[in-house]
Design a protein around this nucleic acid. Structure first.
Length: 496
RNA sequence: GCCAUCAUCGUCUAGCCUGGUCCAGGACACCGCCCUCUCACGGCGGGAACUCGGGUUCGAAUCCCGAUGGUGGUACCA
């Protein structure tokens, strides 16, 4: 709790609804959320939709729902259910703040800190090429900076901010002292016209008006920071503290992209990852608690988060680790909750499961429980437990363990069947069943009995053990499956 | 090109600020063994890294300089 003094912490995330919600947005949100919650501050969500061409309402909705799904709740910002914005500093969509930006653009214009530029894109491109050819940094040459008279008969192209040539220095909470020489920048375009501000300008105005104290964002914004600081100075705004998070990377260390991985948060949701698993994993990308705990809840992260322990280098998105972390979280999620979460996945897979009102409902929980430690996602739970909900299909010869003959296998199964039939239905549980089968396994060998028994119950070479399966299936279904296996062997006998 | 920034096992990282306890610790993944009817879990074990070159120092993963490499930016996108 070191970084703040008396002022109340206010942080924000400012995503653009120009595409599916990126996993990187989720991580930036997480770090902001952690910092805000830990400092007793306010977490603001602002939608940066100044680019009307690319911004879409459906992406905004996805963003809000994605954040809610992850449990990264915001204190101020648009309402996920279409209700009015929350908070005193709204509106929280930049597209609704045009009048505000207009006022500040005019202010800069009047003070002579900004000016209309009449250079066309073609002019600019020519300039740029010339500079590049000369080995110079390609920056705007200030052609319209000191125009006395606007060129006759021409409308301005854009509005530019006069970038003073100074050294801008700031202390980044993650990178430490960072400095830029703005002489290399050239005058920046801040708006296409009075009603169409650009990102760098809108951010400055909004962060100031929303009284943001800490800007926690991706490192790709590091070089925007000096430009924004200069505008803050021109407008008389305070400079917030900055923390630039390292980027999430592809396996080849470039910025994470579709080419290498699923970048959309929704795809992880659809594949059956848990919000807690995702939050844990993306938290680990660039940060980890001092005590080396790697599997943790968000409460734990909240307690142990330290901005100063955030990495400076980017981190490769490693799906294997995500799988591990998610599996660990599934193990600690209460079974009833897991069942509820899994239901849609059963539906999607077309597997008929007992409903909550069904007398048989309890077996669903047992089936799910058997997948813990085996399944890394909810989709895996569903696939792994498929065998409990339909008579399995398999080749008769799979029933024979190693070199055991068909006759011996049949004998073993008949023996097992007799044991099961004599076994009380209300004692169809792992331990009692094992006990009941022990004389038979002692006589014939465990493999000779248990392998075919397990295959007849599961239809698979790899599955939970037969006693566990029977506990889920119950007496009637277990007996039916074993009987069917014996029939299969009898029917197929000639073939062997 | 220019500017910024980064650099410990394949990956995520501890250690670096406050040099010696580090022939570098943990986790994932991988391999082996044990458990075992199979899978998984679990237990035990293994291989695997301080980018390079100088300097400072009795001593450097740790401090300094340089090089190399990576990444980000260099828009009338955000």
């Amino acid at each position: 709790m070191a970084e703040t003094s008396k002022e109340k912490v206010r942080v924000r995330i400012a995503p653009s609804p120009t595409g599916q919600m990126h996993i990187g947005t989720a991580r930036t949100a997480l770090f902001n959320w952690l910092f805000a919650r830990q400092q007793g501050g306010t977490f603001v969500l602002r939608i940066e939709d100044t680019d009307v061409e690319r911004s879409k309402k459906e992406y905004e909705t996805e963003l809000l729902q994605g954040l809610e799904w992850l449990g990264l709740t915001w204190d101020e910002g648009p309402d996920a259910n279409g209700g009015p914005d929350r908070g005193e500093f709204g509106p929280y969509r930049q597209s609704e703040r045009t009048a505000i930006y207009r006022k500040y653009i005019q202010q800069l214009l009047e003070k002579g800190e900004a000016y209309y530029c009449y250079c066309t894109k073609e002019d600019l491109e020519a300039q740029r090429q010339a500079l590049l050819a000369a080995g110079l940094p390609p920056r705007y040459n200030g052609h319209c900076r000191n125009l006395v008279e606007p060129p006759a008969g021409r409308n301005p192209e854009v509005i530019r901010f006069k970038v003073p040539e100074v050294k801008v220095e700031f202390k980044d909470l993650i990178h430490g002292k960072t400095s830029f020489d703005t002489a290399l920048f050239g005058d920046q375009v801040i708006a296409k016209d009075l009603d169409t501000p650009l990102y760098n300008f809108a951010v400055v105005v909004d962060d100031a008006l929303m009284e943001i104290t800490h800007v926690i964002r991706g490192e790709d914004h590091l070089s925007n920071t000096p430009k924004q600081i200069l505008m803050q100075r021109a407008l008389g705004f305070p400079t917030p503290q900055y923390a630039h998070l390292p980027l999430i990377l592809n396996p080849d260390r470039s910025k994470m992209s579709k080419r290498f991985a699923d970048v959309a948060l929704s795809s992880y949701r659809e594949r059956g990852y848990l919000p807690d698993g995702i939050v844990n994993f993306i938290g680990l990308l660039g940060w980890h608690p001092k005590d080396d705990h790697e599997v943790f809840t968000r409460e734990y992260a909240l307690e142990h988060f330290e901005m100063s322990r955030v990495q400076q280098a980017g981190a490769i998105f490693n799906e294997e680790k995500l799988d591990f972390v998610n599996r660990e979280h599934m193990k600690t999620t209460p079974i009833v909750e897991l069942v509820t979460l899994a239901v849609p996945f059963y539906e999607k897979a077309g597997i008929a499961i007992p409903s909550a009102t069904d007398a048989n409902y309890g077996m669903l929980a047992k089936a799910v429980a058997l997948q813990l430690g085996r399944a890394k996602t909810l989709a895996d739970v569903v696939e792994g437990s498929r065998l409990f909900f339909a008579m399995p299909e398999y080749e008769a010869k799979l029933l024979c363990w190693k070199e055991t003959s068909v006759n011996d296998t049949m004998d073993a199964l008949r023996g097992a069947l007799a044991v099961l039939e004599a076994h009380a239905a209300n004692k169809f549980e792992k331990e009692p069943l094992l006990e009941a089968l022990t004389p038979l396994t002692n006589e014939k060998g465990r493999g000779v009995v248990l392998w075919p028994l397990r295959v007849s119950l599961s239809g698979q070479a790899a599955s939970p053990d037969p006693m566990e399966i029977m506990e889920v299936l119950g007496k009637d279904e277990s007996i039916a499956r074993v009987s069917r296996a014996i029939e299969k062997l009898e029917g197929g006998r000639r073939l062997f």
